[in-house]
Design a protein around this nucleic acid. Structure first.
Length: 207
DNA sequence: CGGCTTTGACCGGTA
DNA sequence: CTACCGGTCAAAGCC
C-alpha cells in the first residue's frame, strides 16, 4: 500500500466567493493563488467518484451541482505525496471510514499556528482523491515552498467545489474534455454566500 | 530532534 | 432516551 506514490488531486478552488470566478488559476501554480486568505468557512469538494456517487451527492445537495466523472478527471494535478497540495501545509490528524463513502476519509489540519483551516479528503483505492472538503479560511499566505518533501506537480481532480455554507462551485463547466485546465471553474455559483460558521474552537476536550 | 503519519478510543450531535 | 455516525484527540512509531 503505497498510495503515496499515486498522484493526487488538487483542488484549485479559490476560496473567494467573489473572486472565485476569475481567480481560478492554473492548477500547477503554487503561488498563483496567493492572495488573501479565505473569507469564511468554505468547503471545497472534489469528486472523482463514479457517477453513482456523484449522483448521490447531488441528491443530497439539491442546491449543489455535480460534475461528471469525466469532468472531474479533467482536472488532475499531481502533488507527489501530498494528498492534495493546495499551497498550504497540512497535517493529518485522523482517518475514518464513514458510511456512504466507499473510501476512508482523512482529516487534515493546516500546520500554521493560528490557522483553523481543516480539510477532509477521501481517497479511493487508486489513490485518487474522491472528495476533498475544505473548511475554514487561512489566516496566512501560502508558503513559498512546500514545507516538506518535494511536492510539486499538481494533481487534482476537479469535481465539485462546495462551501460549507452550502455554496457550491463548479470548477469546469462540464467541460471535461475541453478544459485544458480543468481547474478553472467557469463560474462560481451565482451568489456565493459564505458564512463563517465555525471560527470558534469548540472546547471539546476529553480529559 | 522535530514533525508527520497511523490507529484506536472518546465525545458530541443528530435521527 | 437510545443508537449511530462523524469528527477530534492522544500515543507510538517512522522518516
Amino acid at each position: 500500500m503505497a498510495p503515496n506514490d499515486d498522484p493526487i488531486l488538487l483542488p484549485r478552488f479559490n476560496s473567494s466567493h467573489q473572486e472565485a470566478g476569475e481567480e481560478l488559476i492554473s492548477p500547477c501554480s503554487n503561488n498563483a493563488v496567493e492572495a488573501q486568505p479565505q473569507q469564511a468557512t468554505e468547503q471545497l469538494k472534489i469528486s472523482t467518484l463514479p457517477i453513482e456517487s456523484q449522483r448521490l451527492e447531488a441528491e443530497d445537495i439539491p442546491k449543489a451541482a455535480v460534475l461528471s466523472a469525466a469532468a472531474a478527471s479533467s482536472v488532475q494535478v499531481a502533488y507527489g505525496d501530498r494528498p492534495s497540495y493546495d499551497g498550504y501545509n497540512w497535517r493529518k490528524y485522523g482517518q475514518k471510514q464513514v458510511k456512504g463513502s466507499e473510501y476512508p476519509r482523512s482529516y487534515y489540519k493546516c500546520t500554521h499556528p493560528s490557522c483553523p483551516v481543516k480539510k477532509k479528503v477521501e481517497r479511493s483505492l487508486d489513490g485518487q482523491i474522491a472528495e476533498i472538503v475544505y473548511k475554514g479560511e487561512h489566516n496566512h499566505s501560502k508558503p513559498s515552498l512546500p514545507a516538506r518533501r518535494n511536492s510539486i506537480g499538481c494533481e487534482a481532480v476537479g469535481g465539485e467545489i462546495r462551501m460549507e455554507s452550502g455554496l457550491l462551485l463548479l470548477p469546469s463547466s462540464s467541460a471535461a474534455g475541453t478544459g485544458s485546465d480543468g481547474c478553472r471553474g467557469g463560474r462560481p455559483a451565482a451568489d456565493v454566500e459564505v458564512q463563517g460558521d465555525d471560527d470558534e474552537p469548540r472546547t471539546k476536550r476529553r480529559l
